[in-house]
Every structure is written in structure tokens, then in C-alpha cells.
Design a protein around this nucleic acid. Structure first.
Lengths: 222, 222, 222, 222
DNA sequence: GATGAATGAGGCTTCATTCAT
DNA sequence: TATGAATGAAGCCTCATTCAT
């Protein structure tokens, strides 16, 4: 198994959603599955290869997960929960809380948080994005538990800055969309360049340019 | 076969990349493959189902394409070519040419063009996006023949507006990224809402808001 | 494959229930399946072994029968039809028709017919009897299409002899039951002894004793 | 586990053939196995399901029985012994002893005894009948220890009635066969009707009709 | 060119059995 | 004695691909 150990797996190890503990073998299976799924896609991955990479017998996989699909969901479902954590947590350590004086602080915090998340969960995120279109249950769950929650939270934060007298003419949903677009575009290109050595990418500057762009676009000043 | 006939297929019918003509059966195969690949993903699609939907024998597929993968490439490769057409064409009907006085016209033209393209080629685009991560040849070709060409073209257009005295402080690549991010975010959300009936989405307004946002963000006025 | 070729397969070869022709390979598969199912029971038979005995690839089985169970039904269903043939046919060659003057002729004809049937279809009959308890669809079909038809026919024949002034005190269903019990008991023991060499079994005498027993039991004279 | 507790298990509990005592867990395993085997057939039953129904761990089964087959034999072997009990016991409570004045009393006693046995051991009997054809050891043992013993005993009883001046012309084995056929036919149909509610089955009458039929058939009067 | 029966490798899953705890 | 995680062989079935017609 390679060294791309996804961080959130550590939480899984302490006990999965149903509260059961994970054995060491099960955790190796999940690790291997994440790798293989990310590498080849769910449908093109074989349980045989997963078992080999995990160093277990193929049958062992099915002692923990009734089907290959259940294994996929066992990876993706907790990832969704993890995805929204910073948006539902309140108080200390909260990324998007009310203690931000200016919207650019919100943007900066989001960028940092999402980059950190991406760094730790790249493979699982890749699986999530690849498989969502083909699994209606995943789709529905994503919309309900992730999109819904996150957008609601962001809209409220934006609304707060709007009542403070800024960004008056735009619906808060639109503000959220424009902000996220810019951030995701930045992260996407950054990630792309991060993988190539020949790149000329001044990360600090691009980030600040992006934030400034959004602020200006929304009619805000720092 | 459904009625979602992808527009570009008409061009394929007249002759593929190597200049050969396509028979009617081959075209039915390609149509069916596009449908099935888009629906289930390449790896989860069976040549058997494709043959059935195309109304041909399974063997017939392999008369035209040596392997299943070659069939995929036979769909994806011309799609890539099509993807850059408006960016390489000059003169009449040219989407992004120099005859635009203001950058917002460029943005508006891009939006319209890409929406139109998406409308006509949704399934092929879906396949392209889904499969690119798993096929290095496709990746490389996409970067070289699509990304490279399009970005270069856009950077030059942006540069023109910059020498005209606008957007001075930003690298043209950054301007392109910010513009595309906003446009893609708009199109993505629009597409998402377009599929749901309960939506409150004032398309005209969102589009203009987006363009205005980019213009302000870049420090431009109409 | 052994030489226990079941006779009815010849009819299958000319076309199965849905009217399709059977290829030579398919017929070999059916032959092999009958052998293996009879030998080990349906659940303990492997499609792998069937394929080997049929001299085809395992996949070939599933080209003709979607599942192993469908293969079973493809064997058992026509057997059921065959089972009732002598009871539904009328006129010439009809085993149980009205041209019998005495009930003992009926009994004798039934015995001969069933023995002949058993001789030709021993394996399929064994499968039928073994599997019926575990497959509700087979059960239902058997009751409806075999039991129902046969009993009805026999009851009518018996009724005819009853109106002729014999067996007055017994319900016709009871007469049928008693007749069949005796016949089946005879056939069972005969079959059992037929397989052992050390047997002392005077078939002609046992048969006539059985018929005489039934006749006397029903209060009839020849 | 359901409430269909087979009666003979009580004897097993007190000690199996080799004289060892059965623990409570082992008895639960046997109970569960009887249920599952009867329901799905031996080959289609999984030790996993048996363990679950017995409320024990899968490994526990193999502590008591080296293999799944041994578990089957552990059920079937004592059942065979039980099957012949009334035929070997003498004196009080003896079903078929010499104290019967008339053969119809023998028949009536056999019927009652076998019905009672069936009532108490339906599942085990079903297993026995289902599996005997596939296990040569069981076959042989059945013939030697059950068939042989029972037939011998019955033939002697019949012989007694024959020397008393009845049934002169028939071999005693034939008499036994005809008697058993009639009884089994009666019990079979009775069992079949007993499971359906819509039935018109006058049990008392059918039984007496059957006995009278045999008596007449053998040339006897009550 | 078109067909579709045939293939056999490989996929997912089940299962009896073992063994460390 | 009892457990239940682990095994790996084997089971059923799917699939891309071939080839005789």
C-alpha cells in the first residue's frame, strides 16, 4: 500500500458511523479501496486488487462489507460528513463564524480550510466527485446533507454582511455562487499546477488576486 | 435509442478524423455508445447493451472498432476537436474575435456559446469529464489540443483589452481563470437548476449579475 | 456424457416451448444438466461440471439460460408437459380411453404406460421429485398442470365404471387414490429390485397380483 | 427458532448414539439444522444460517461436528433408529405384535403409529427422504437397518395371518407391499390435504375405506 | 459488411472450515 | 468450551472479443 494515507481514516478507525470499532484488517481494506477506486474508478476496480493491496484474502472484504457497493458507500458516506464539519461547528476553531470583520477574511478562511481538506482527502474527494453522477442515493444524500447545509450556512454569513450595508443589490445565493466559483477555480488551477514542476505559479499572489477580485466584484472594500 | 441526438454526430457522419465515411450502422453504434457511456460510465457499460440499443449485432461493433476503448476514443477525440472550434475559427461567426469593443461582450458571447455547446453535446461532455482522469492519453491530448489552444487564445484576447488600458495589474492568465471560473460556476448552477422544476432561477438576471461581477472584479466598466 | 439419453430431449431438439430451435450445443448442455442434477441434486451441482460434461465453455450455458435456475426449469417444465400427455390425448393410442371394457384393462394400461415413461425419463423424473419441494413455482405448476389434469381425467374414467354399476360405495377420488397407490407401490418396488441383481422378483406375477388386488379391493371382477 | 420442536430430539438430549450427553448449545444447533435442512435442503443450507438460528457462533458447530455432513448424519442416523422402534419393541405398547386377532387391526395400528410418527418428526423425515438418494452410506444403512428390519417383521406378522388360513395365494412380501402402498397413499394424500384449508377430506371415512380396500383386496373379512 | 454463437478470463460473492483468543 | 475473524476454494455469472457462416 502506498503512503497516501487519508487523514479521515483515523476517525474511522476509532469507530464508524454505527459506532462499531474497525479492526486493523478492515482499515487496511478501506485504505486500499480508496487507493484503487481513486486510481481506476469504482466500476473498473476489482475486489481482487483491493484485497491484494490490503494484504487480505478477497473473502475478508465481504465479511466487513456485504457488497462492493457497500464498501464504496462505507468510504463515501463518512467523507460527506467530514466535508461539512467546518460549516456546522460553532465557536472556537470555527472557520466561518461571526467573528470576521470583513468578507475577505471569510474568503481567506474558506480557501485555507478547503485547501487543507483537499490535501488530506484528495483521493476520497476524487471518488466522491467521480461516482456521484452514477449513484442516485449518493446524489440525494449529497444534496441533502452537504449542499443544503453548506449553502444555508454560507447564505446566512453573506446575509450578515449584507445587512451591514454591503453587497446590497445581489441575492445572497448569487453572492455565494460567485464566491465559491472564484475559490474553486483558484483551487483547481492551483492543484493542477501543483502537480507539474514546470509551472510558474505564484500561489500567494494568485490567492490575494482572487480574493481582491471577489471583493471588488461584490462592491466591497477591505 | 432516445432522441438526444448529439449534434456533432452529424459531422462524424460525413467522415471521421481519418476522412472515412461512416455507415448508418456505425453511426447508430456511436449514438448508442454515447447514451450508454453517459448513463453508466465507460467501465460499467457493456458492449452488449450498446449493440442492443443500436439495434446491431454485438460483433458489428468490433467490425468498426477493434476494442471497446477504441470506441470510446472514437467518440471523445472528435468531441475535443469540436470543443475548440469556436476558439480557432476566425472571421464570421467567430465568438471571441477582436471585434468586441468591451470585455463584457466577450463574456456574454462565451456564455452563450458554451451554453449552446453544452445543450447540444451534454452527453459527450459528460463522458469526456468522467473519463479524462482515467486515460492518460486523453488527458495529454486534452491539455495539448484543448486547454492549450483555448487558454492561449483567451489570453491573447485579454491581453488586447489590457493594452487598451484595462485590468492592468493582473496577469492575463489570472484574468482568464477568474473569468472562466465565474462563467463555469454560472453555467453549472444554471444546469443544475434547469433540471429541477421547483427552482427559482431568474436566468437573465443571474447572467447579467455574473458578467457585472466579473467586470467589476477586473476593475472594468461597461 | 454417458449414454443415458433421455427420450423427451428429442422433442426439445425440435424446438422448445417458445418454439425456438435448439442448437446442438444447447442440447448437450441440457443432457449434461439432467445427468448432473439427477446425480447430485440441483443445489449440489455446479455449472462448471455441467459445462465440462457437455463439452462447452461455462459461459455458453449462460448464453442459453440466464441463470442456473432457469436451466433447471428449462428441463423440468417440458417434462411436466410430457408427463400428462397420455392423459390428455384422445382417440388412437390413448391409454386411458373409453374403449376399455373392464377396469383391470385401465390399470394394466396405466402400469405399462408409466413404466415406459419411467424407463425413458428416469433422470428427469428424479429431478422433478427432488426439486419440487424447494421451488414454489414448480409446486404450483405441478399441481395445476399435472395433478389437476391427471386426477380429473382419472376420476372421469372411474366415474364411468361406477355408473356401469361397479365400485358404487366409494368416492371416485378415493378409487383413484387407491389405484394409484397400488400401481406406484408396484412400480417403486419393481424399480428398486430392477437395480439389484440378487433379486427374486417375478415381475409378471407381481403385476397381475397387484391388479387383482385392486380389482378385488374395489369389489370388481374381471 | 420456531416451535416445531421435533420430539425425538429429547432423546438425543439425553445422550446420542455413542452415549455422550448433549449440551444445550449442541441441541440448539441440531434443532436449527433440522429446520434449515428441511426448509432448503442439505446442499442449499449454510452453516452460517444454522448458527444464526441456533444463536451460536459458526465455529461452535464445528466443535461438535467435524463437518457439515457429519451434522447431517448426526440428525439422520438417530432418526433411522427411531423409525424402526415400534417394529422391534415387543410386549406392552407394541404396535404390531401378535396379539391382534384380525389383520385390519394391524393395518389400523400401523396407520395410527405412522401418522403419529410423521406428526412428531415431519422435518427429519423430509430430510431423510430428500438426502437418502445422494448419500450412499445413508442408503445402505437405511436398507440394512430400517427396510430390512421392518419388512422382515411385517412379513412375519403377515405369515402368521397366512398360516391362520388367509391370503393364501400371495407371497407375504407382496402382501406387505400392497398394504404399505395403500397406507402410504392414504397418509400422503391426507398430509397433502391437511395443509390446505379448502379441502373436503373426511379423514375417518377415508381411513376406513382404505383399510376395507386392503382387506377385500387380500381376500379377507373383518 | 454483418451476424450471433461461442469462448474463457475474470468479476463479485458465498461458504465450509480453521485458529488465535 | 465458545467465539468470530479470516481464509481461499469454488460458485454463479458477465463481458469483451473472436470467428465461422
Amino acid at each position: 500500500m502506498s503512503d497516501t494515507k487519508e487523514e479521515w481514516i483515523e476517525e474511522l478507525l476509532r469507530g464508524d458511523e454505527e459506532g462499531r470499532k474497525m479492526t486493523e484488517k478492515q482499515s487496511r481494506i478501506v485504505q486500499a479501496a480508496i487507493e484503487v477506486f481513486a486510481e481506476k474508478g469504482y466500476a473498473a476496480s476489482s475486489t481482487n486488487e483491493i484485497a491484494q493491496r490490503a494484504g487480505v484474502a478477497e473473502g475478508t472484504i465481504f465479511r466487513h462489507y456485504k457488497t462492493k457497493k457497500e464498501l464504496l458507500l462505507g468510504i463515501v458516506a463518512p467523507a460527506m460528513t467530514k466535508l461539512i464539519t467546518p460549516f456546522v461547528l460553532r465557536g472556537f476553531n470555527n472557520v466561518l463564524d461571526s467573528e470576521y470583520d470583513s468578507y475577505d477574511q471569510v474568503l481567506r478562511a474558506m480557501i485555507e480550510n478547503r485547501i487543507e481538506f483537499l490535501r488530506k482527502n484528495r483521493n476520497v474527494l476524487k471518488i466522491l466527485m467521480q461516482e456521484i453522477p452514477f449513484h442516485p442515493e449518493m446524489q440525494e444524500r449529497f444534496q441533502r446533507e452537504v449542499l443544503g447545509v453548506v449553502l444555508e450556512r454560507l447564505k446566512r454569513i453573506v446575509a450578515k454582511f449584507q445587512t451591514n450595508g454591503h453587497m446590497a443589490e445581489l441575492p445572497s445565493a448569487t453572492v455565494v455562487r460567485l464566491s465559491i466559483s472564484a475559490i474553486m477555480g483558484y483551487i483547481a488551477v492551483r492543484t493542477f499546477y501543483g502537480e507539474r514542476e514546470d509551472a510558474v505559479w505564484d500561489d500567494e499572489r494568485e490567492r490575494e488576486d482572487t480574493i481582491a477580485f471577489v471583493m471588488r466584484g461584490l462592491g466591497l472594500t477591505r
